[in-house]
């Protein structure tokens, strides 16, 4: 753990926390522009957060300590996962811990906390959202792990930094398996973040909600924490996709001002590109019926499995 690594880690974390709501705002703004509206400025999510923090929160009478503690735990777990995923630089202080399975576990922890908070008050919507979210995760998680299997075979490790380093050198080349793993990961990312076509991030139609249904009873700073958690999760997934599939241009740990600037620029371009892709995709896609979602995620799971099988075919002979 070098001092350079620690500094990089701190800068990375600060950037991630500051930019996450901006990213959400950017996607919203892009979608509005694509639909021909002017749209709110990308700063709007930050303003909303600060406004929510100033308000007095209201808790339901039947709420227990779970409603109070769960948002801190969920946001803490997501932030811990964010600290592990490399952004603009590689070789951060926490890089030895940056294991893909651990990231999946931390996301599961925040999901569990969210579902607990949803069930705490005892309303139909909260229970419904929690049940649906855990069921979708039951298919999303194996799809993620099977994609990790593809990376583990190609890079020999499940450490994100190590995978990024191997891929940045172009060792594995273009592979059908990587294409399949990418598709599977994209589907998982859409489902985990509650984006179209799995769940609409701005829906107000109760019957179809998943994520929003769980937050109906929260307000004030608790709502702000949950919103921040959702934003951070989107940031995490986009950074993860960038770190695994677009590992080019990432700066080494402590490479001076110019190295950092180049890394920051590359990272910003990647994130912006992914945000544009997400906005275009969401604008062009209709929300699918709730009971089609398992098929969607099941297809992702099978594609990832297919990717692994093809890797066996090509590595079995080597």
């Amino acid at each position: 753990m070098t001092p350079g690594g620690i500094v990089t880690q701190l800068v990375h974390l600060a950037l991630m926390l500051a930019l996450a709501p901006l990213l959400v705002g950017l996607v919203r703004w892009l979608k509005a522009r694509l639909m021909g509206r002017r749209g709110a400025t990308p700063l709007q999510p930050w303003r909303d957060l600060l406004k929510l923090l100033r308000k007095q929160p209201l808790l339901a009478e039947s709420a227990s300590a779970v409603s109070i503690a769960a948002p801190y735990l969920a946001l803490g777990a997501t932030a811990a996962a964010v600290a592990l995923v490399p952004g603009f630089a590689r070789g951060m202080a926490l890089a030895p811990m940056a294991d893909l399975i651990l990231v999946a576990g931390l996301l599961a922890l925040s999901r569990f906390a969210l579902a607990l908070a949803a069930m705490d008050v005892g309303t139909a919507f909260g229970d419904l959202g929690a049940a649906r979210q855990m069921s979708f995760a039951a298919l999303a998680e194996p799809a993620f792990i099977l994609s990790v299997l593809c990376f583990a075979i190609l890079a020999g490790s499940t450490n994100i930094d190590a995978i990024g380093a191997v891929f940045a050198e172009g060792g594995p080349g273009l592979r059908v398996s990587l294409l399949l793993a990418l598709l599977a990961l994209l589907a998982v990312a859409l489902a985990e973040n509650g984006r179209l076509p799995v769940d609409s991030p701005s829906t107000q139609l109760e019957l179809t909600m998943v994520h929003e249904a769980m937050l109906l009873e929260t307000s004030g700073r608790y709502l702000a924490l949950w919103e921040m958690q959702a934003a951070l999760r989107l940031m995490l997934w986009l950074s993860l996709l960038a770190a695994l599939f677009l590992p080019f241009g990432t700066a080494p740990a402590f490479s001076g001002v110019f190295g950092w600037a180049a890394g920051l620029l590359a990272w910003a371009v990647k994130l912006a590109g992914l945000a544009v892709a997400l906005a275009v995709f969401e604008s062009a896609t209709a929300r699918m019926r709730l009971f089609r979602v398992p098929e969607f995620l099941g297809a992702a799971l099978l594609l990832a499995l297919l990717g692994a099988v093809f890797l066996f075919l090509s590595t079995g002979s080597a």
Partner: peptide, 24 residues
């Protein structure tokens, strides 16, 4: 992270929560 958040929010958002009937 969780502890740091709690400490920060205690300063930024000090209002104690009010209790009300569930909205549902």
């Amino acid at each position: 992270f969780a502890g740091g958040l709690a400490a920060v929010l205690r300063r930024w958002s000090p209002h104690p929560a009010a209790r009300g009937p569930v909205w549902d």
